[in-house]
Design a binder for these strands. Structure first.
Length: 572
RNA sequence: GCGCCUGUAGUGAAGGGGUUAUCACAAGAGGUUUCCAACCUCUUGUCCCGGGUUCGAAUCCCGGCGGGCGCACCA
């Protein structure tokens, strides 16, 4: 079977069976937007649920949910407005598009701050040549905004906003509430799943580059001086890793995460732990462990907020694709939000091992003298006095205010006093380790890795060998024939199964039994329960296992019990 | 955004300036059938959108939208 055809056969299957389809198709479709159909939506829900459960087991990790509409100011602070508004210049000769500021590298100290007309002028006066064809015929620099713009408020006076390009900012916005929730104790984490939006220039490759996509992100807040200790020894699987090409370990290796951390390839213990947990998650939802690798970002390609960054890449029909980014965002986000919002709540408190006694000599302003003497500037004088670190030996002296002006401080304006205090700890800005998952990309690879084209009695036969935890249905109930009471009994069985919480089943009565097995195999249903003639006599049913088509006969109570305890596998 | 290729039932394809657009599979109804896409009868359903050329356009031309690949961009 040729490899070129496999992807189109898989895509056909996804459409035909209502798993993933193009959106708005009767109106011609929109590039970069997809629908999950009735079967795909169930798979997606279960992948997302698996993700929430996986990380929810970590102590001190909670789920939150925040708006997708985000005020501009938040994204200015996060750096997205600057970062996602690059100006592009296009070569009129060959059609190549380049970042305008990159064209001016070496010609201007800080081309990023230039506006469009300055960029155009510098490009033309310096005779910048097109890197691909050498021509000098440039279109005007125009912003390439990768965020969807909107505004809050229907009438004039509305507030600029964007559809969020990531969910992470929601967690940062909620930091004060999280800090309270966890009773001021780090580490803790917050996660959310939901939509993110990026107005890609050219979305491609099916569900790989979307304009509206499902993300799942976790922000784990730690004290950088006391990173949580982690036990990496429970993961002994060897994983393919591509360390930073500019670093000391530049070639691809196979190692356990523990080894990678001990040899310094992974620098941060918490990052190492997240790499291991990520691998675990992917394997649990049915990604082929042989098609996973972790790639460390070179220092040059790191996102604006990250100090160390690993991609988890999966191999499939589209080659190696990044599906998870694990970044040490350090204190960047919280610090930046503190600066822009002037909020004082984006911090953690760390107790010293031993309290420190501090004594400090200060010059305390005498209000009744300072006030009349300096009038409107009195407050500035008091401020400047409190910030003095080296107290002058003699009074009078000259004091420099915040605005750079000076005043003479004379005898009687201040009193010298000694402040004694016990300092038991200090404030700090927590660091953040962030795993960010692209759910749609993961779903694609789950489908890809589990799409098996087999041969059965000389015929092509397709199985979607999904992990039961992410299968669209847990099982399908099939009467051998829909008559003689078999159909009725199948419906009773379905009803009993339906009352088990967390179990989803459907019934299929049309056409031959073999065809119905094939249909359920094709959408990945792991179990089929068949009601046959013997069922009518003695109440037993057969359970068929998708992956080897073996069947066992059990009575209905055993079936219900096994389903409840999720131990169907043990019947075989 | 540029270049090349491309768009016909749910899926995959054939055809093509002139009656009612073809085939397979899938799907629905009925029959048959004692467990793996069997068989029989019947049925449903298609030329991406807009404009142009023409007596006549699904077919030719132009534009748009969508898809694939490459470049660029992006993670």
């Amino acid at each position: 079977m040729d490899d070129k055809g496999r992807m189109s056969r898989l895509s056909s299957l996804l459409r035909r069976r209502g798993i993933v389809l193009p959106s708005f198709e009767i109106y011609g479709g929109v590039s970069g937007l997809i629908d999950y159909g009735p079967v795909g939506a169930r798979i997606k829900r279960r992948v997302v649920n698996s993700w929430i459960e996986h990380w929810g087991k970590v102590p001190n990790v909670v789920e939150i949910d925040s708006p997708t509409i985000t005020p501009e100011s938040v994204l200015v602070a996060s750096g997205h407005v600057g970062e996602f508004n690059d100006k592009m210049s296009e070569c009129k000769s060959c059609g190549g598009a380049f970042r305008s500021d990159h064209l001016l590298d070496g010609l201007h100290d800080n081309p990023e701050i230039l506006d469009s007309s300055d960029l155009d002028e510098l490009i033309s006066t310096n005779g910048v040549k097109c890197p691909s064809c050498g021509s000098q015929d440039w279109s005007g620099a125009s912003p390439m905004n990768l965020m969807f713009q909107t505004s809050i408020g229907a009438m004039g006076g509305s507030r600029a906003a964007y559809m969020r390009p990531e969910t992470a900012q929601g967690m940062f916005m909620l930091y004060p509430a999280l800090y309270r929730h966890f009773r001021q104790r780090l580490p803790f984490g917050a996660m959310q799943t939901g939509k993110g939006y990026r107005n890609e220039i050219s979305p491609r490759q099916g569900m790989i580059r979307l304009r509206e996509f499902n993300m799942a992100e976790l922000e784990y807040f730690i004290d950088p001086e006391n990173p949580p200790s982690t036990d990496l020894s429970r993961w002994q699987r060897r994983i393919s890793m591509l360390p930073d090409p500019d670093g000391p370990h530049s070639s691809e290796i196979e190692a356990t995460i523990e080894e990678a951390f001990e040899t310094g390839i992974v620098k941060h213990p918490t990052v190492a732990w997240f790499l291991a947990m990520t691998m675990q998650f992917l394997v649990d939802v049915g990604v082929d462990p042989e098609k996973v690798r972790f790639r460390q970002h070179a220092s040059t390609e790191m996102a604006h907020y990250a100090s160390d960054c690993w991609d988890c890449e999966l191999s499939g029909e589209h080659g190696w694709i990044e599906v998870v980014g694990i970044a040490n965002r350090t204190c960047h986000d919280l610090e930046s939000h503190e600066k822009y919002s002037k909020s004082g709540l984006l911090r953690g408190w760390r107790n010293f091992e031993y309290p420190v006694n501090e004594s400090r000599e200060t010059l305390k302003p005498v209000g009744s003298v300072i006030g009349p003497a300096f009038r409107g500037r009195a407050a500035d004088v008091a401020e400047a006095l409190s910030e003095l670190t080296d107290l002058p030996e003699i009074i009078p002296f000259t004091l420099t205010l915040a605005d750079g002006t000076t005043v003479e401080i004379e005898e009687g304006m201040v009193t010298r006093c000694l402040q004694e205090s016990v300092v038991s700890g200090e404030y700090f800005t927590p660091h953040v380790i962030e795993p960010a998952f692209g759910i749609d990309r993961i779903i694609w690879h789950i489908l890809d890795h589990n799409y098996l084209e087999l041969e059965k009695e000389g015929e092509e036969y397709t199985i979607l060998a999904l992990e039961p935890s992410v299968a669209p249905y847990d099982l399908v109930v099939l009467p051998l024939f829909d008559k003689d009471g078999m159909g009725a009994m199948a419906r009773e069985v379905l009803q009993r199964i339906g009352s088990i919480s967390g179990i989803f089943a459907e019934i299929d009565t049309s056409r031959s039994i073999g065809r119905r097995y094939a249909r359920s195999d094709e959408i990945g249903v792991p179990w089929a329960v068949t009601v046959d003639h013997q069922s009518l006599d003695d109440g037993t049913l057969t359970i068929r296992r998708r992956d080897d088509q073996r069947q066992v006969r059990v009575d209905i109570d055993t079936l219900i019990e096994s389903l409840t305890s999720k131990s169907l596998q043990s019947l075989f």
